[in-house]
Simulated assay, not measured.
Amino acid sequence: MSEPESRLVVIAGSGRSGTTFLAKLFDSSPEVLYRHEPDSVLRRPEIPFHPDAGDVEAHADAMRDYLGALMAANQARCAATTPTFPKSFRSPAGNWLHRALVYGSKLPPWGKDPALRVPDCLRMPPPVTVIKTVDSLCRLRLMARARPDARFLHIVRHPCAVAASVAEGHRLGLMKGGAFLDAVFAMPEAAGYPFDKADIAARSPAEQVAFKWMVQNDKTHAEMAGGDSYRLVSYERLCVTLRAELTALFAHAGVAGNPQTDRFLDRLEQTRSAGRRYFSVVRNPRSGLFKWRQRLPAGTVAAIEAMVQHSAVGRLCLAAAAEAERAVDASAGCS
């Protein structure tokens, strides 16, 4: 698949910020071929994860090649996410076969094979390829230099919600690692806040996660804001005004509205629960949206919200989340 044959959309954000949910909304379109975190499978550590201006020019060609590889990555980890959706670029038989391969890839003994590939079963090039990433959030400027025709959706969620979800993932044994403060403080941008490494290291794990969230999201937004290819997305606003927000995001990305996506939105809105599994995307968007208030101590919430007042993205995110919370409360009061 050559680059001009498929438009590229990159969905990026910090872990537990709603990237997978937004990506699945896009995957519901018959036009979209979806790649789930292919940079976690095809790793190119020689391309900087936190590039500066000089790195952008030096690594543009390598990033262009890398993006081509990511768009073509059909390892099961990248190409076998559920639920599945029929695609216009597959024949009816191809759609049936692809669905069978996706669900079959999750069965023993194949489910544990990291090298397993799921053929795309294409009859024509897909109009749009969507790549979702949490590892390459700070690489967006480099990606934009390599592919000026691409579109970028940068999704942010209230940092307390992110911190609470990360903590829950650790408790369930589904997430590993910490805030990686050495790597965060190696970024020049970390020096732009009134916190040093000793201060952040002495804070709670939730506050450390919030600091990492702040530095990385601020860097990306500062580098990308103002460009026609870039859109900052509030997870909370998306969940509360789902259809209007998704219509605008589809238009930005050059994806047409379609009945298949409408049916998927109906399914989500008619679901009563917040999802039975930690990584579930089939859930009512509003259900449990602000459950983090019960999961984090009030003092931790106050400390995180005070911290991210030093952040441009933090202030925008807190305002959008507060607006969404008022809408949810008002809706609950009317029901």
Results as ranks from 00 to 15, higher is better:
residue 84 T to Y: 13
residue 15 G to D: 06
residue 18 G to I: 14
residue 146 A to K: 06
residue 333 G to S: 12
residue 155 I to W: 01
residue 83 P to A: 08
residue 163 A to S: 12
residue 275 G to M: 09
residue 282 V to S: 02
residue 19 T to I: 02
residue 328 V to K: 05
residue 60 A to L: 05
residue 328 V to D: 02
residue 305 E to S: 06
residue 75 Q to M: 00
residue 47 I to Y: 11
residue 9 V to I: 08
residue 288 G to T: 10
residue 142 L to Y: 11
residue 111 G to D: 06
residue 139 R to P: 02
residue 245 E to Y: 02
residue 177 G to N: 07
residue 69 A to Q: 15
residue 228 D to A: 14
residue 50 H to R: 04
residue 230 Y to N: 04
residue 148 P to L: 08
residue 208 Q to D: 10
residue 324 A to S: 14
residue 87 K to N: 00
residue 21 F to Y: 13
residue 273 S to P: 03
residue 8 L to V: 05
residue 205 P to E: 07
residue 259 P to D: 12
residue 105 S to W: 07
residue 5 E to W: 04
residue 105 S to P: 06
residue 23 A to I: 09
residue 2 S to Q: 13
residue 288 G to W: 05
residue 143 M to R: 00
residue 47 I to L: 13
residue 287 S to V: 03
residue 128 V to E: 07
residue 328 V to S: 00
residue 96 W to M: 13
residue 320 A to K: 03
residue 311 S to H: 05
residue 319 A to Q: 13
residue 35 R to D: 00
residue 91 S to W: 01
residue 34 Y to S: 07
residue 53 A to E: 15
residue 300 T to K: 03
residue 250 F to W: 07
residue 316 L to Y: 11
residue 263 R to M: 02
residue 227 G to K: 13
residue 161 A to G: 15
residue 90 R to M: 11
residue 128 V to K: 01
residue 80 A to E: 07
residue 239 C to V: 03
residue 97 L to S: 11
residue 260 Q to W: 04
residue 329 D to P: 06
residue 40 S to Q: 14
residue 139 R to I: 07
residue 199 D to F: 13
residue 119 P to T: 08
residue 127 P to I: 11
residue 64 R to I: 04
residue 34 Y to K: 05
residue 179 A to S: 13
residue 214 M to R: 04
residue 249 L to P: 02
residue 91 S to A: 00
residue 293 R to L: 12
residue 183 A to W: 03
residue 23 A to R: 10
residue 73 A to C: 14
residue 205 P to M: 02
residue 183 A to Y: 02
residue 17 S to G: 10
residue 76 A to M: 15
residue 70 L to E: 03
residue 268 L to Y: 01
residue 298 A to W: 03
residue 301 V to M: 15
residue 312 A to Q: 14
residue 280 S to L: 02
residue 310 H to K: 08
residue 155 I to F: 07
residue 81 T to S: 09
residue 213 W to E: 12
residue 329 D to I: 14
residue 270 Q to A: 15
residue 155 I to P: 04
residue 7 R to L: 01
residue 262 D to W: 04
residue 244 A to E: 15
residue 51 P to Q: 00
residue 210 A to F: 08
residue 289 L to F: 01
residue 19 T to V: 10
residue 104 G to Q: 05
residue 299 G to L: 11
residue 310 H to M: 06
residue 307 M to P: 01
residue 262 D to M: 00
residue 36 H to L: 08
residue 191 A to T: 12
residue 204 S to R: 05
residue 297 P to K: 04
residue 293 R to F: 12
residue 257 G to C: 07
residue 330 A to P: 01
residue 191 A to L: 11
residue 17 S to H: 01
residue 277 R to C: 05
residue 55 D to Y: 06
residue 108 P to N: 00
residue 196 D to A: 00
residue 314 G to L: 02
